[in-house]
């Protein structure tokens, strides 16, 4: 049985739910949802500053990076070089060494380009980054990422932002069974029960953005995800009953009148 401490590289996290900060109405809603989710790590993107709008509010004004861990991502990068450039800049902003690598291969599906992902992971590991890698749900590639030094492997449940939930439980289970680093389901989670299923399969954590941000009530959904992840983890640790083909009465037959 896996221990009940969630640790990525040397970083202990209190919550097994990591949340994204994109797609919200405004930063106030982002901050409220993050708080309600109980997450202590959030993903953020690196982008150009708008030099024409000097008064534009900043994410850091709403989510204090000293209180909540920022996990810079490479969203929008389509090759290893672009993602390396982005993460080196991210490190310069605040000294972040823990990063999320995501090298996309196709605009329609946002599926990861695993060849470029492997290439970038190798360089980042060499440069001292702690890399959490978004990847396909291929068990061999997931293992390969672990071999080359990924701090966590993050297979997709289904395409980014699709809300289609976990499409390949078998692959995910194989990845989890083989892994020595944390496995975090990233992308495609649609609702709280999807997160529970991921955790019941034995995932170490779940990364959610759209399912919270695009809910009718994002703050309530954030809280729901908090409970769903805890629930799924407890369920995994408790160990489910064996499936039986026929019924098995819950009330004893002895003493029946």
């Amino acid at each position: 049985m896996k221990k009940n401490i969630f640790k990525i590289a040397n970083q202990i996290l209190q919550s097994r739910l990591i949340v994204g900060t994109g797609k919200y109405k405004n930063f106030k809603e982002t901050a409220q949802a993050v708080k309600a989710s109980g997450a202590d790590m959030v993903t953020v993107a690196v982008r150009r500053i708008n030099i024409l709008d000097k008064k534009k509010p900043l994410l850091t004004d709403y989510l204090n990076p000293k209180k909540i861990k920022y996990l810079p991502n490479t969203a929008g990068c389509f090759n290893a070089d672009e993602s390396l450039r982005t993460l080196r800049l991210a490190r310069e902003i605040g000294g972040w060494k823990m990063v999320k690598l995501e090298v996309l291969g196709d605009k329609k599906t946002l599926y990861p380009d695993m060849i470029e992902t492997l290439k970038a992971t190798k360089v980042l590991v060499k440069e001292g980054f702690k890399v959490l890698v978004y990847c396909s749900d291929d068990p061999l590639l997931a293992k390969e990422l672990e071999y080359i030094g990924a701090s966590a492997v993050m297979p997709l449940a289904s395409p980014i932002g699709s809300g289609q939930g976990i499409q390949n439980k078998i692959n995910l289970s194989i990845i989890i069974k083989n892994a020595k680093v944390p496995i975090i389901v990233d992308a495609g989670i649609g609702t709280a029960s999807d997160a529970t299923i991921a955790m019941e399969l034995g995932c170490d954590g779940v990364l959610v953005n759209s399912a919270i941000a695009k809910a009718k009530n994002p703050i309530l959904m954030a809280e729901s995800f908090k409970n769903a992840v805890v629930s799924g983890r407890h369920s995994f640790l408790a160990g489910r009953m064996k499936r039986l083909f026929y019924a098995d009465a819950s009330s004893p037959l002895k003493g029946l009148i």
């Binding site: 994204g20 994109g22 919200y24 993107a45 690196v46 969203a75 902003i93």
Partner: peptide, 8 residues
């Protein structure tokens, strides 16, 4: 010049 914005 870059900074952090919301992202998933």
């Amino acid at each position: 010049i870059v900074h952090f914005i919301g992202g998933g």
